[in-house]
């Protein structure tokens, strides 16, 4: 997968030891100038920011080949821990009322808006033009607001009272599938990421997300936004690392109910679908190349992550 020249295929990272991290730093130090404090990009599991248990990282480089940051190269064990956290968070999140879920989604939007410039800068440093970066950040904020509004409405659109012929009251409602693993789109580091996370959690699922390998910065910063937005621990868990290494884990884990693959690599899709069959995992493949506008959002993105539950009860005395 590592076709992007910005990403080193190596994960040991010894060659970059001591390299300055550029992501939060502007230029080489000049005399008298203040040394900026570089950010360490960690992963996000159960509401905490641990380093990968593996101790591995990979250098993220800019176009010129200079190292922007060292990114955690998440491991199978990190993923396992993240699934435990997601499963642990599911009972609480899935019983959080829709109004509150909507408010939390809206809160994420608020926090992201406030930190917008940081995200623009991160996108730019990862190679996105300034103008596009600015558009992407505002679109992401708006997307979160959009789903905040859906939280207490999709159920009404998609549930049903079914007119059965017998003396029973019968109704179908949507329920979250449970824990969803998400292989985020490779080429849209913020909007694509959030366009997959937001509908899943709006629909009361919890998730484990693998960020774009080549554009991971916003994912971790977004985790910081989540952490400060009343999103309960475990609802969203974000790993960075190699999709080549982790996609199989994301697809095969027996305690994951659904896997979302955003991307159009046929071989990867096949790998994911094949391994998903282990536990009859639901597979959701999103092949759109653009996450902007209506192709990147809608109530059907939520519905994709829902089970339909039908309940029967006699009508009598």
């Amino acid at each position: 997968m590592d076709k992007d020249p910005r990403v080193s295929a190596r994960h040991a990272g010894n060659d970059t030891a001591g390299a300055t991290q550029k992501a939060t730093r502007q230029a080489k130090p000049e005399a008298g100038a203040r040394l900026t404090v570089a950010k360490t990009y960690k992963i996000y599991i159960g509401g905490k920011f641990p380093r990968t248990e593996s101790g591995r990282y990979y250098p993220l480089r800019d176009k010129s080949g200079e190292v922007i940051a060292n990114i955690c190269s998440g491991s199978r064990k990190d993923f396992r821990e993240a699934v435990v956290a997601a499963r642990g968070g599911f009972a609480n999140w899935s019983s959080t009322n829709a109004y509150l879920r909507g408010q939390i989604l809206y809160r994420i939007a608020e926090m992201l808006e406030g930190r917008g410039q940081q995200f623009v800068a991160e996108l730019v440093i990862q190679g996105v033009s300034k103008q596009r970066a600015a558009t992407e950040v505002t679109a992401t904020v708006d997307r979160l607001v959009y789903y905040a509004g859906w939280a207490d409405k999709y159920q009404q659109v998609f549930s049903a009272v079914n007119p059965v012929a017998s003396s029973h009251f019968n109704f179908s409602v949507l329920e979250p599938m449970g824990v969803i693993s998400i292989l985020a789109p490779e080429d849209s580091g913020l909007l694509g990421l959030v366009s997959n996370i937001a509908p899943a959690i709006t629909g009361a699922n919890t998730c484990v997300v693998l960020a774009s390998t080549s554009m991971p910065l916003c994912a971790i910063s977004f985790a910081e936004v989540l952490e400060s937005s009343d999103v309960p621990p475990g609802v969203v868990n974000i790993l960075t690392g190699s999709q080549d290494e982790l996609a199989g884990q994301f697809a095969s884990h027996m305690d994951v109910n659904a896997v979302i693959h955003a991307g159009s690599d046929g071989e990867r899709i096949k790998e994911v679908q094949l391994l998903a069959a282990n536990n009859i995992k639901r597979t959701i493949v999103r092949t759109q190349t653009s996450w902007v506008g209506e192709t990147g959002q809608g109530p059907y993105f939520i519905k994709d992550t829902q089970e339909t539950k039908t309940t029967w009860h006699p009508v009598g005395a």
Binding site: S167, H168, P314, V315, G316, A317
Partner: peptide, 8 residues
């Protein structure tokens, strides 16, 4: 308790 529909 008795459930009418079940009885029927």
């Amino acid at each position: 308790r008795v459930d009418q529909v079940g009885v029927e």
